Simulated scan of single mutants.
Amino acid sequence: MDEAQLNRSKKAAKALKSRVELIERHLKPLLQKDLLDTYNTLPINEKCQMDVLLSYAINTLYYMYIRTQGQNPHAHDVYKELKRVQKYIEKIKVAEGRGPKPTMKLDKGAAGRFVKAAINSPKNYERPEGASKKRAAPAVTEEESSDSSASSVEEKEEKVDVKGKLSTKKRARMDPFSK
């Protein structure tokens, strides 16, 4: 082995040692007590995180073991398990609000229905110049107003139109004692 390779391997070993020490410092509070006691004191979201973390760590270690044995880990079931656990990690991130933000998407089907309804709508037809949207109320003469004021009781006249709908119109009832 030449000197350049020896220096690279020494640097890699130092880097590995520093990272292992960093991991040990992070895990020290977790490993001081019994794992079950620590797990029971966690809130539900942190329990989920811990379950996923442990599952991912175990599967990753097994994945690396398979690689060191010269096998293809992508053909092994551990690869499928890692992908499944990664989906759970994403679900936890979304539940905590750290996941990807939703993007604005166009619903082409709904947009097409809106346009089609707007094109086929009778509202788009032009009205004649003199016509307005509201129907004008019929003019009431003085005689009619006095007759209707004398009679406080009204009858409903029911008719069935051509389409089979029932329509009701109010008709003034005549008072037999008036005149």
Score class of each variant (00 low, 15 high):
Gly130Gln: 14
Gly130Glu: 15
Ala131Gly: 08
Ala131Asp: 12
Ser132Glu: 14
Lys133Arg: 11
Lys134Ala: 13
Arg135Cys: 07
Arg135Leu: 14
Ala136Phe: 10
Ala136Gly: 09
Ala136Thr: 14
Ala137Gln: 15
Pro138Asn: 07
Pro138Tyr: 01
Pro138Lys: 07
Pro138Ile: 04
Pro138Met: 03
Ala139Val: 14
Val140Ser: 03
Val140Trp: 03
Val140Asp: 01
Thr141Glu: 03
Thr141Val: 08
Glu143Tyr: 11
Glu144Ile: 08
Glu144Asn: 11
Glu144Cys: 05
Glu144Phe: 12
Ser145Phe: 15
Ser146His: 06
Ser146Leu: 10
Ser146Tyr: 04
Asp147Phe: 03
Asp147Ser: 07
Ser149Lys: 15
Ser149Cys: 09
Ala150Met: 05
Ala150Lys: 07
Ser151Tyr: 02
Ser151Asn: 03
Ser152Trp: 08
Ser152Gly: 15
Ser152Glu: 13
Glu154Gln: 10
Glu154Tyr: 09
Glu154Ser: 09
Glu154Leu: 05
Glu154Phe: 11
Glu155Lys: 05
Lys156Thr: 12
Glu157Pro: 02
Glu158Tyr: 02
Lys159His: 01
Val160Tyr: 01
Asp161His: 03
Lys163Pro: 01
Lys163Met: 07
Lys163Ile: 05
Gly164Cys: 00
Lys165Tyr: 07
Leu166Gln: 09
Thr168Glu: 11
Lys169Thr: 05
Lys169Val: 01
Lys169Asp: 04
Lys170Tyr: 03
Arg171Lys: 13
Ala172Leu: 01
Ala172Met: 00
Ala172Phe: 00
Arg173Tyr: 01
Arg173Ala: 01
Arg173His: 00
Met174Asp: 11
Ser178Ile: 06
Ser178Pro: 02
Ser178Gln: 10
Ser178His: 08
